[in-house]
Each structure stands twice: as structure tokens, then as C-alpha cells.
């Protein structure tokens, strides 16, 4: 399955400037992505997963952000490229799919034009060839009536169809890597299943790698090969989907899975993680960032500078606190202040 890695994220930090000081939204993240593989980055809002995606794409304003580390992609470090060099990568070798397909499309341009724009910048096709390729793409993403649809405007399509258009844009130049940021969050559940199946099919056909960013553990379990769980800007656990779901180790991963509504436990209260995710400016700088949310674990159980520990081949957990973690059943009422 996993061939050689072609995207290696090494110690990447992304810090935003807020009132003159920088705060890390992503801190020291290292991840590898392989061909033919779906890596899911999962976490709740504010964990830094989307920031990581836009960091890979180089979409941050350099005046407002400070980015450290290295992102090696096909032999070059994306973080050291100039804007022009990046433009040769974006759209051509890395395609991106966004959450809300209505706002992701220009309301005033026809569908065909918007798909073709990628081809305009990355290929030397003639107009006729581009037109044919656009139709082929629209067909490939399963939109009925391609001839008609390419002349329509975004608001004339349903949400599911719009997301297919966004996917067609992302795959126009057969990128090696696709980054999908919450691609199904705005869609109905039956449409979500169809879009995820489509993404998997395209990934197999194009032998591409996919980074799937989502908060939905169900989506991850259905789709991902590899999983990275993020909390407060850090990867706290990573491994294969099987490892993460069948043998979760980090207190955060275990808590998240436990807070999902489960079959046959309808009469029990759902598990609630104490406290809340700190805001960017109040994020602890050092130590185990999850410690404040599991206050019953003794301080000594945490590492001073939490690092990743291999618990089984390919399965890593941050901080040593997982060894002494046990659920302490919180009662309703014991919640964030």
C-alpha cells in the first residue's frame, strides 16, 4: 500500500500575529504522506488542522504569519519557494477542496470557466482541448448533463453538485496530492457518503495522496488509511486508522471517541471532557497541552517537553500521560466554567 513518502512535513509551526505578538496555531507538526494514501487530520475547531492545510498551500499572508520548519514535496521545500514557484505547484501538483462549495465558487463565473482556469495556468492545451478536458472532468466527478452544467452558474446547482465542481477544479491537472478541508461538512449525509466515495475513487484512479481534514470521526473511520489527531496545534496521536480506532492511546483520542453517541448506550450520559479548548492567546506554551483537561492525572505523569512515543509499529502518542490515564466519569454539571 504505502509507497515512498512524497510529502514530508517536518517540525512545522505557524504563528499568527495578534496585537504585535505571535501565537502558534500549529506547533512543531511532523507528518508524512504517501502516494495512494488518505491521511486524515482530525480534531475539533481551533486545533490547527485547517491552518496546517493552508500552510502547505502557502496561502498565508507573510506579513501576518510566521512559519517555521520544512515541507518537502517532490524534492523541494515548499516553505522556501517564491510566490511564482508556488503557483506552479498549486493547482498543478496540489489541489485543494474546501468546506462550503457555494462560497468556494465565484458566483459570477460559469462553472466551465472556473474549472478551465486551472488548465489555463498549468497546461499548454488549445481552447478546444481545454473544453474537452473540462467536459471529461465534469463527467468524471459524476455530474449529469455536463454540456449544460458548464454553462451554468454556481447558484443553479445543488450543494452536492457544487462540491463535485469544486473537486473537478482540484483534480483538473491530476495533482499528486489533494487537500480536502472538511469536504462534506456542509452536505447532507447521503450526499456526504457519495462525495467521500468519489474522493476515494479519484484517489485510486490518479494514484494521488489525500489529506482529509475533518472533525467527523465517522468520516475518518470510513475513509482514512492513516490518521493524525490534533489538539491545540499539535499532533497528539498518529497511526493507521485501525490503530487509532481499535487501540486509541492518547487521553484526548480516547475521550473524543467516548463522547460520540454509541449504539446500545442510549440511556447513559455521553462522556464530557472537562474544561474547554484554550484560545490561541491562552494556549500553554510548554508541557502537555491536554493536562488541564485531565486534572486527575498526577503532574509527574506528564513529560516536561512532551514528545512522540512509539507504542506499536507506526503508532505514536505524544506525552507519557497516556500510560496513567483512566477515565474518571464526569457527572453532568462538571463542565467548563
Amino acid at each position: 500500500m504505502a509507497t515512498d513518502e512524497f510529502l514530508a512535513i517536518k517540525d512545522v509551526s505557524t504563528a499568527f500575529k495578534i496585537h504585535g505578538s505571535y501565537y502558534k496555531a500549529v506547533s512543531d507538526v511532523s507528518l508524512d504522506i504517501h502516494n495512494d494514501e488518505i491521511l486524515a487530520i482530525v480534531g475539533e475547531s481551533g486545533c490547527g488542522k485547517s491552518t496546517l492545510a493552508t500552510t502547505i498551500m502557502g496561502l498565508h499572508d507573510p506579513a501576518e504569519t510566521k512559519i517555521d520548519g520544512e515541507i518537502d514535496f517532490e524534492g523541494q521545500n515548499l516553505l522556501s519557494l517564491t510566490e511564482d514557484q508556488l503557483n506552479d505547484v498549486r493547482g498543478a501538483k496540489i489541489g485543494m477542496i474546501f468546506q462550503d462549495p457555494l462560497s468556494a465558487l465565484n458566483p459570477l463565473k460559469r462553472i466551465g470557466e472556473q474549472i478551465q482556469e486551472s488548465l489555463d495556468y498549468h497546461t499548454k492545451m488549445t481552447e478546444a482541448e481545454k473544453k474537452a478536458r473540462v467536459l471529461e472532468l465534469v463527467n468524471q466527478v459524476g455530474i449529469p448533463n455536463p454540456e449544460r452544467v458548464i454553462r451554468q452558474f454556481p447558484h443553479e446547482l445543488s450543494g452536492g453538485m457544487r462540491q463535485r465542481v469544486v473537486i473537478a477544479i482540484a483534480i483538473a491537472c491530476k495533482p499528486d496530492l489533494m487537500i480536502a478541508d472538511e469536504p462534506t461538512t456542509a452536505l447532507d449525509v447521503t450526499i456526504q457518503a457519495q462525495i467521500l466515495d468519489l474522493l476515494k475513487d479519484i484517489q485510486r484512479e490518479n494514484h494521488a495522496g489525500i489529506i482529509l481534514i475533518t472533525h467527523d470521526l465517522g468520516v475518518v473511520a470510513e475513509t482514512a488509511d492513516q490518521v493524525a489527531v490534533m489538539y491545540a496545534g499539535q499532533v497528539v496521536e498518529q497511526g493507521s486508522a485501525q490503530q487509532i480506532f481499535d487501540n486509541p492511546k492518547h487521553p484526548y483520542t480516547r475521550s473524543l471517541l467516548r463522547s460520540m453517541p454509541q449504539r446500545d448506550k442510549e440511556n447513559d450520559d455521553l462522556y464530557v471532557i472537562q474544561g474547554s479548548v484554550p484560545s490561541l492567546q491562552k494556549m500553554p506554551v510548554d508541557g502537555c497541552k491536554f493536562a488541564p483537561r485531565v486534572p486527575w492525572i498526577p503532574e509527574a505523569a506528564h513529560e516536561e517537553h512532551p514528545s512522540m512515543h512509539e507504542v506499536e509499529p507506526g503508532h505514536q502518542v505524544r506525552c507519557t500521560c497516556y500510560q496513567s490515564f483512566e477515565f474518571q466519569d464526569a457527572k453532568v454539571g462538571e463542565v467548563e466554567a
Partner: peptide
Amino acid sequence: RRLLSAIPETSVAHREEARAKREAVE
């Protein structure tokens, strides 16, 4: 049945089965 088959389950081992079932229902 279509709605139920579309809910993602957190069972990695049975995902291909789930997809086959979902596609059959669809």
C-alpha cells in the same frame, strides 16, 4: 435504509462492507 446506510460508523474493519451495502441500497 438509505439514510441509515449513509451514517459513517467508527468501525474501520467493516468499511468496505459498509460501502458495498450503501451502494446496493442507493
